[in-house]
């Protein structure tokens, strides 16, 4: 069973994928988000950190045995168990399908929509309208898939569900955005089910109220 | 062993990941790129196609047993064997790490740099200069990793190598771009090794001359 340390800044939705996967699988994960263990912007620019994690990005994982990984999908995969990864070749491929879907269909437009509302980017009406449409399109596909299923792959929670839920975190934090999106209840129910089974991490989403 | 059909337009670098993986693993893959089997822009908008592949994007894979997959990373993974996917949990995670690296560190700036030169998008000097810097940074990390290794993960070709090589296809097609990038020979040697072992697919890269 994996054991190690996850370096990240607090409330990092990418790190949540790994943290939730570890909770489900039982991997022993220490999370370093603050001094002295880790200071984002400083520690990740040191030569020691960069020698293990050349991009200087977080989350970054170092096992107790020295094994190093960057890229959140890889870390979450490593900290998972076979059930989360997909126990058959078909299930494993479907898990990767939805992980890619989250990265390529949800994250870009969701970020383009949410970041201006957080004051991180300048607001651009045309870009925001396009982003909303793109988010709606992605969530419509997701909602349709969940019309007849409880989870994205198979009959139990997988890395697909964890990844997709985490990718929607900021959409849900900005609650009113999803209400405007007129999301059908399948997605909200889906999120509740993915998060409900794991009591240890529910506090990470305590500020989120599904629409 | 997987057997099915890959729907795509011709010369699609995303489809190449799956095609090369299938060649290595021995999966029986038919590739549908032209009428009557598949017409990009028409077939992928039909209700029949969208019922299996709701995003309408390619590459899309349908097994002879009816199993459907979208997202190129998932398809390539499914058509691989255990060696390509990474035979141990650590190797499998490292494969995913480099796949994510290709998607997040190479493809965005490579697209920003190359698309205007192909007439796909309008040229923007500032965006191009930034893209060049980002490509250089990503390839520097890659080159450094390959300084002491033949392949990205372990001692043999994996999905990591296939994905990273395919993600650089446009950069290499626009040969002069890489010359301007002053790529150290590690990457060129790396590409040659990844492609050299698989004679069946070398024709896919016949128009590419590594810098």
């Amino acid at each position: 069973m994996a054991a190690g340390t996850l370096y990240t800044y607090p409330e990092n939705w990418r790190a949540f994928k790994a943290q939730i996967a570890a909770q489900y699988s039982g991997a022993r994960l220490k999370v370093a988000t603050s001094p002295p263990a880790f200071t984002f912007g400083q520690t990740n620019r040191t030569p020691a950190f960069l020698s293990n994690f050349p991009l200087g990005k977080v989350p970054a994982y170092q096992g107790d045995d020295g094994f190093c990984l960057f890229e959140s999908n890889a870390i979450a995969h490593f900290l998972s168990n076979d059930a989360l990864r997909g126990a058959t070749p078909q299930a494993a491929a479907q898990v990767l399908q939805w992980v890619s879907f989250a990265d390529s269909e949800i994250i870009p437009p969701a970020s383009a929509w949410v970041f201006p509302t957080l004051g991180i980017m300048q607001f651009n009406k045309q870009a925001t309208e396009q982003a909303k449409e793109d988010v709606k399109r992605a969530l419509t596909v997701l909602n349709q898939h969940l019309n007849t299923r409880t989870f994205l792959v198979g009959e139990r929670v997988s890395l697909a569900d964890i990844t997709v839920v985490c990718s929607m975190l900021w959409l849900y934090k900005q609650n009113s955005l999803l209400n405007k999106c007129q999301i059908v209840c399948h997605i909200s129910q889906f999120i509740s089910k993915v998060l409900a089974r794991e009591k240890h991490v529910s506090h990470l989403f305590c500020s989120v109220r599904p629409a | 062993m997987a057997a099915g059909t890959l729907y795509t337009y011709p010369e699609n670098w995303r489809a190449f990941k799956a095609q090369i993986a299938a060649q290595y693993s021995g999966a029986r893959l038919k590739v549908a790129t032209s009428p009557p089997a598949f017409t990009f822009g028409q077939t992928n908008r039909t209700p029949a196609f969208l019922s299996n592949f709701p995003l309408g994007k390619v590459p899309a894979y349908q097994g002879d047993d009816g199993f459907c997959l979208f997202e190129s990373n998932a398809i390539a993974h499914f058509l691989s064997n255990d060696a390509l996917r990474g035979a141990t949990p650590q190797a499998a995670a490292q494969v995913l790490q480099w796949v994510s690296f290709a998607d997040s560190e190479i493809i965005p700036p490579a697209s920003a740099w190359v698309f205007p030169t192909l007439g796909i998008m309008q040229f923007n000097k500032q965006a191009t200069e930034q893209a060049k810097e980002d490509v250089k940074r990503a390839l520097t990390v890659l080159n450094q990793h390959l300084n002491t290794r033949t392949f990205l993960v372990g001692e043999r070709v994996s999905l990591a190598d296939i994905t990273v090589v395919c993600s650089m296809l446009w950069l290499y097609k626009q040969n002069s771009l890489l010359n301007k990038c002053q790529i150290v020979c590690h990457i060129s040697q790396f590409i040659s090794k990844v492609l050299a072992r698989e004679k069946h697919v070398s024709h896919l890269f016949c128009s590419v001359r590594p810098a």
Binding site: I107, P108, S111, L118, I120, A131 | Y9, F40, G41, S104
Partner: peptide, 30 residues
């Protein structure tokens, strides 16, 4: 969290690039 999020690298324009690529290859394929 917002301050940290501001330092994240996101491909905001991905959809625009996907769309441009799609149109390009649809034209190329008649």
């Amino acid at each position: 969290a917002v301050d940290f999020l501001a330092q994240e690298k996101i491909w905001f324009d991905k959809t625009r690039y996907d769309e441009a690529e799609r149109r390009f290859y649809e034209r190329m394929n008649g």
